[in-house]
Design a protein around this nucleic acid. Structure first.
Lengths: 234, 234
DNA sequence: CGCGGCTTTGAATGATGTCAAAAATTGTGG
DNA sequence: CCACAATTTTTGACATCATTCAAAGCCGCG
């Protein structure tokens, strides 16, 4: 059997405060898995048989409405757990998880979750803390959708992405995974047309740059002013 | 000292699966408190010193944006915990809780939370389950805001309220606490004007009734059709 | 080189917000 | 019991942001 080294996951938030030997224990029941770009890690409403840790790549979590519209709930970065439906007492996945680029994940059998949480309390606590953070995120998103108009929502979304997954370049902060205008639209509850218009307008103002499936924020500060609405008035 | 009886809280979801003697223990550290209509139970960004159980009345949980706009996050019914910031590792309350009518609450010192959770595992599990439910709620709300237009959002909001707190009357299901068009607007990210127009239109169609600070759903099924968008097309 | 996904752009439409004012309801104090 | 004040609700006219519809351009890949 192919042993996985504790250093793989030590230092990742969910495993904070757990001894290397214990990490090795946890890894013994894990199975590594490669996921091709565009493939699904799990699908909405499927029975939640496993939970996952993203080791490398980027994952987009999407919900689809009964009438087929899609909403991007969040992007997952390496070091984050996903598919933790069991932790919240759910028996099915609430959303679909898609590999935005080739990914490497660890897979555990879902039944292990309660075992892990009982045996290593910090693991449970860490998870619940991130659940708390996700609740906060969702609430901020509700507030943005309720009070901000499209331009500011898109600006906020880009800044959040840059913060999560930005790579500094000569031209500014590059969002370092492929993302389309359609994706941004589905994050912000608008259409790809509106996003496209906004981005070209911002490009003329020198706020952003980009190209096909790519966005780069050239003036983060300027974009932040836009996002927070201190533009134009008084 | 004034003893509180375990029957006060037995049967309430957060205390499911806990023995009466233990309930009595928990109650010994609780302090009952009356809150007048319109008064705040706790305020956004205040240090989270206590957590609460609503015994009677209705509470509106509101977030205020930096520029003063308000968003109603949820209504709390008797039997629900509120102010559980500590459970999620927060040190301040994320929102303001307002008594919609005269309320009776139990108050515990916030530090007791971790003690309770350690001593009575079901209490912790119950709480996390409701946190999971609230995360789901928030996500559904995001999806609604992203994909539905105002009319359907308002319809959904009313149906949800009716489900949580509806009382059957001759004319239909009455939402049995005072609620203004403004409140409904803040739940759905629109303006009181639009809500007013919608309600009068619906009243003409015989879907709802009501009056000042009051809404009654006379045709729940019809409203559900509206909410789910099966109206007019094909 | 041609095809398929992505992106841009224009014009027209429509849903909602904004502004403004009047009407209805409830509570209060005399 | 009435009149007033305060709040809530209704309604109209108008402005506008964003979607929709339509079409063309662009880019990368096979």
């Amino acid at each position: 059997m192919n042993r996985l080294d504790p250093s793989l996951i030590s230092g990742m938030p969910p495993f904070e405060g757990i001894a290397p030997d214990d990490l090795a224990d946890m890894l013994r029941s894990a199975r590594p898995s490669r996921v091709k770009e565009g493939a699904a890690i799990f699908g909405q409403d499927e029975p939640a048989q496993s939970f996952f840790l993203l080791l490398d790549g980027r994952v987009r979590v999407v919900k689809t409405t009964p009438d087929g519209q899609q909403v991007v709930m969040r992007y997952i970065m390496p070091g984050e757990l996903l598919g933790i439906a069991q932790a919240l007492g759910r028996s099915t996945y609430p959303a679909t998880a898609l590999a935005v680029m080739d990914c490497l994940v660890l897979v555990w059998n879902g039944q292990l979750w309660s075992e892990f949480a009982a045996r290593w309390p910090s693991f449970g606590q860490n998870t619940y803390k991130t659940v708390g953070l996700r609740l906060q995120d969702a609430q901020t998103q509700v507030i943005e959708m309720a009070t901000e108009q499209v331009e500011r929502r898109v600006a906020h979304a880009l800044l959040r992405l840059a913060h999560q997954s930005g790579r500094k370049t000569d031209n500014g902060i590059l969002i370092d995974f492929p993302i389309s205008r359609q994706d941004i639209a589905e994050m912000t509850g608008t259409t790809l047309h509106t996003v496209s218009r906004l981005l070209t307008a911002w490009e003329e103002k020198g706020l952003v740059g980009g190209g096909r499936m790519q966005v780069c924020i050239t003036d983060p500060h300027g974009l932040l002013l836009l996002a927070d609405g201190r533009t134009g008035r008084s």
